[in-house]
Computed example of a mutant assay.
Amino acid sequence: MMTQANLWQTQIDSSSFAELCAALYQREINVLAQGDFPHCQALQARLKSLPHYVSRTAHAMVQVNNQQHSPLLLDVQNANWSAKQNSTLPLSGQAIDDVNRWYLTSNIRVGLVVPIINRTSKQATIVLDCVDRIDLAKGRVRTNVAGWFELTHSTLEDETSKKLKSFSNDQQLLKPNKKVMMAACAGHTWQGSHKSAPLLPSLRELLLSCNINWKNFKKTAVVTNGLTI
């Protein structure tokens, strides 16, 4: 039975969904307009699939927000998650051996949402990716976008060299925790030792953010009544 409260909630959901779709469409059209496509068929394929992914992402974000299974705040107008940004990169507990041990002993599965730090000489950003292959025999995992990461223990290194901040790599797999995952979802960025303006996560990253299990980062989100939460 539809009560007045249910009707009011449905109207809010419908409004939020519509605003999210509009913001996502505007963002993705700008991305496609600036893209470098080898032939028009590639662009046509992206445009053809766009309504499906925009609708799916907007629906998932509304459901996650309504179910309150995420510590993030939903910014409907900008189609983004917001959270308070740390003054410095949240790298506590992210020594190489700590990260490797987590992935080697956590019984992780394909599809798990994981954080990756992207670094340049001036900027660092934490982004979301997902595991698409696990090769424990060789001590490595592969993520969908970033590729393979070696998970060998570096027992001969001293503590300074084992710290993530000393890495010269452009990309490094991180161990999921609340601060790191919130930073990734909200597009937090740092320049040197100072925080800078957030970046807008991609449509793919927003969809991945809705599959995070905030109570247990070793698992993906569960599905209730056909809704991702």
Results as ranks from 00 to 15, higher is better:
K195N: 15
C21Y: 11
A79M: 04
S106C: 05
R133C: 05
S161F: 12
T228W: 08
Q171I: 03
W81V: 10
L199D: 13
L91C: 02
T120M: 06
N80C: 06
V114Y: 03
V222M: 02
S92R: 02
I126C: 05
M61I: 03
I116P: 00
S92W: 06
K162F: 09
V54M: 05
Q68K: 13
R142G: 08
P38D: 07
P71E: 12
D36V: 09
S16M: 14
D158N: 15
P176F: 01
A183P: 02
S87A: 05
Q77V: 12
S92H: 04
Q63F: 03
F167I: 08
L112N: 10
L73G: 02
C210N: 09
A79C: 10
R119G: 06
L174S: 02
I126L: 08
Q171G: 02
V180Q: 03
D75W: 04
T57Q: 01
A137V: 05
L151W: 10
L164G: 13
V31S: 13
L151I: 15
T189H: 10
F37H: 13
A60Y: 09
A60E: 03
N216D: 10
R140H: 09
N211L: 11
S202D: 12
S196V: 13
Q171V: 08
V180C: 01
A33P: 00
T10F: 14
T125A: 08
L136V: 07
N107L: 09
E205K: 03
N213K: 07
K218R: 10
Q191A: 10
R204V: 02
P176D: 02
K138N: 09
S106F: 04
S15G: 14
R109G: 01
I96M: 08
L104V: 13
N216S: 07
N211K: 15
S55L: 06
K219I: 06
T224R: 14
T125N: 06
V113C: 04
T224G: 00
Q85K: 05
T160K: 08
D98G: 07
K175M: 05
L200D: 09
N66H: 15
V31P: 03
A33Q: 12
L203W: 04
L32Q: 13
T143L: 10
D170F: 06
H59D: 09
C21K: 15
K215H: 09
N216A: 07
I116R: 07
R204I: 05
N118K: 11
L104M: 15
S70K: 05
H153K: 15
S70Q: 01
S193F: 01
K195C: 11
I108R: 00
V145N: 04
P115S: 00
L72Y: 01
T224K: 07
